[in-house]
Design a protein around this nucleic acid. Structure first.
Lengths: 217, 217
DNA sequence: GCACAGCCGATTGTATACATCAGAGAGGTC
DNA sequence: GACCTCTCTGATGTATACAATCGGCTGTGC
């Protein structure tokens, strides 16, 4: 797995996260093999890992597709995410290092810049993909700062699933600015080692996204 | 994956859950292949799935071992589990079917019988493995009754990790009886469609197990 | 006696060939 | 014309052969 397999895993995962492969799309092993320039064996291992990550669904003897979520499953998804990441924010406020804080601050700045300097709305795919990527890294950094293997491994799956939904797609300027402001406030709470506030801000932040997804239906 | 691979997955998983393969033990592909009577290919796929399930750890070019948990990781593990399964119990109280209730009742009866008719303590491995299995099924049934894919998929990993710890190992009679009583009370709360109580009982139940694990150190 | 380099066995990683299965499409029957 | 069945194609599932890598052992030099 040292090279071909983990490389294939990264390539496929990125393709899904960045929206090149859309939900429901069929993933043929031979095609992916050509894409990653390896044989089917490491591709199959990558697909199995992605399945357990929850972003690919495999039907025996039939093949793999990018995982789809039914609209009525989304409220629970975001609620569970809000609970877990809220707990992570709480722990992060208690256990963070200076390095964590530095990383969070940089990610807040980067996202702020992307949003404020953004041109006309709706944004192009490139800009949205970059913003989504920064957003994902921010949340992942909070999860790491919580210093809990159980929490990190568990919450990352849900974070990935949310990013996959591309619920940013038709975010308008005000929604993105609110999101930035919440990231900034969360970073402040973590910097101030205020666990309750960090938890509350994170919950509010994710439940806001939940509201946005529900409104799309 | 229709046959050999999923079969290998089940065999290895059961072996770990039932304590035949202990934490930290090396899992050689060739050995497992002989055990399951298949070639290394499906074994490798099973191991990759088990890794993402969190019960096997794979080091590239080095091999797979049964996942170990450091003592200082356990409090968080049980706390996250308590939160997720508490939420599941809450949803189960709201969304359960009559079938769910029937299954829970039967599992409570089965566990009760195992514990009350149990002979001298400490119990033998066989009796403990059966009790652990019923316990696992009970919790899994609650997760299913919550009717939430995000919650079920997420919480099952932590449940498996807890079962793997075999924290029952030196449960005495009183601890097992308390566990049974809590299962019974939880079933009552779910039957009565009382979400807050169901959540509270589940949290108390899991945090009791957490206390037991911590006391072992 | 100790440290280090190089070899060797064992194990994992990858590619390929073959077996098996699901689904689409043609052809036939009612 | 609708439906059923059969075949056939393309994909996945498995086994095996080969390549790459790791860890321990041995033997040498100091």
């Amino acid at each position: 797995m040292s090279e071909a397999s983990s490389n294939a895993y990264d390539v496929i995962r990125r393709s899904i996260m960045e929206g090149d492969l859309l939900a429901g799309q069929r993933l043929r092993e031979a095609d992916l093999g050509r894409l990653c320039k390896v044989s089917r064996t490491p591709i199959r291992e990558a697909l199995r890992r992605l399945e357990s990550d929850g972003i690919v669904s495999i039907t025996p003897n039939s093949g793999a597709v990018v995982t789809t979520w039914k609209p009525d499953e989304l409220p629970d998804l975001f609620l569970v995410r809000a609970t877990l990441e809220g707990m992570a924010a709480q722990f992060a406020a208690q256990r963070r290092s200076e390095g964590d804080l530095h990383a969070l601050t940089q990610l807040v700045e980067a996202m702020d810049e992307m949003v404020t300097k953004a041109g006309d709305f709706p944004l192009g795919d490139g800009a949205l993909a970059r913003i989504a990527n920064i957003n994902r890294e921010f949340h992942d950094t909070v999860l790491s700062a919580a210093r809990s293997r159980a929490l990190h491994d568990t919450a990352r799956r849900l974070l990935d699933a949310s990013v996959m939904l591309r619920s940013f797609t038709d975010y308008d300027r005000s929604a993105l600015e609110r999101s930035c402001a919440q990231h900034r406030e969360l970073t402040e709470a973590i910097a101030a080692r205020d666990p309750e506030r960090a938890c509350a801000v994170m919950r509010a932040h994710i439940l806001a996204a939940r509201g946005g997804v529900l409104a799309e239906e």
